Computed example of a mutant assay.
Amino acid sequence: MSTVNIVDQPNSKFNAFTLFQQSEQQSQRNLALLKQLQTTLDVKELINIFAFEVAKYIDFSGIYFKHPNINATTKDSRQAKAERQFELKLNGQFFGIITYAVNIPISMTNDKVLTELHELLINPLNNAVQYHQAMQLAMQDSLTQLGNRRSFNEQIKRAMAQANRGQTRVGLIFCDLNKFKAVNDSFGHAIGDNVLIHFAKALQQSVRDTDYVFRFGGDEFSIIVTDASKSSLTVIEQRIYHTMSQDILLAKYNVTSSLGLAFMNTVDDVTSFFLRADQALYSQKMNMPQKFNLASKG
């Protein structure tokens, strides 16, 4: 069972000066919490800091924050007999919902305390959400909505570290379009941009949910294949060519692609892995035999 309360927080209604109009104990509590909430712009960390304070007043097994663009959950959250939801508003506009998983009903006194604490939380939370959104945009290619080179650099490090821990393999596929400049020169940049968008969609349709597609810039793209095998890379390669052949726009302008495939091996760092995939792409474009070896782990 869920109960929803609405907490509306105008920016002008609550600030540090109003703290001193409250009791001394409340003021000290609120100032201490505000100080902690200002130490991070990570949404999940904010919710965990907030949960530590809330635990002084209610017995809960989890706290869940849901915003249209991001969700966060306290560490070790689990289900309970009931849920109590508070709808958060900022300047009269819906901001998000914070949900408490509880086994014991929240008293009216503690309900009031929660409402006051939410007023302290919402502005730091708004700052953190805006920071998250800005970082997401900084990691995204504006034309295709794929991850950009910066996003690739971070994801490849994580993928390689996870593969080493789990004794699995990572595959890399580098992709570019053949004679793309000719399309731009002959038909204009608007058509060229549309070709890039269609190619990006073809790549996304050809990979698994666990894989990642990026655009480096121009007509250069890459795919990180997690838990890879020779067969999985071959299947993705075949899917890319097939999906491109079925795309009306790509077929209309006779757009083809070259792909370079490589596996991470145990001695690879990001640079060496990147260079082998790049060399594989160059080899294919030059119509040279591509060496495609499974590196043994160990």
Rank of each mutant, 00 (worst) to 15 (best):
R169K: 10
Q290T: 14
T234N: 04
L275V: 08
L250Q: 12
L233Y: 11
R276K: 13
I173G: 00
K181H: 06
Y241V: 11
T266N: 15
F221D: 00
S272P: 07
N287I: 07
L196V: 03
D227R: 11
A262P: 07
S222M: 00
L249M: 14
S272E: 03
D211Y: 08
F187Y: 15
M288Y: 04
F274R: 13
S257V: 03
F187D: 07
Q246P: 04
I248T: 13
M264I: 05
A251H: 07
R169Y: 10
S232N: 12
Q167W: 04
V170G: 10
D176W: 02
N265Q: 08
R215A: 08
T266L: 13
S206T: 00
A190V: 13
A200R: 01
V270S: 02
T210W: 11
V170R: 07
V170E: 14
K181Y: 04
L196E: 01
L275N: 15
H189L: 09
D247T: 09
H189E: 09
H242Y: 14
A228R: 06
F221L: 07
I248E: 15
I248G: 02
G171M: 07
T234A: 11
V213T: 05
F180Q: 04
D176V: 01
N178K: 15
E237D: 11
N254M: 03
V170F: 13
G260C: 06
A228D: 05
T234L: 06
A182P: 00
F273P: 08
F221R: 05
S186W: 02
R215E: 11
Y253E: 07
Y241L: 14
A277C: 06
I173W: 01
T271E: 10
N194C: 02
L259E: 02
T266C: 13
A182E: 13
V255Y: 04
T168S: 14
L203H: 03
S257E: 00
V270D: 02
D193C: 10
G192A: 03
D185Y: 09
M264K: 12
L233C: 13
G218C: 01
F180R: 02
N164G: 05
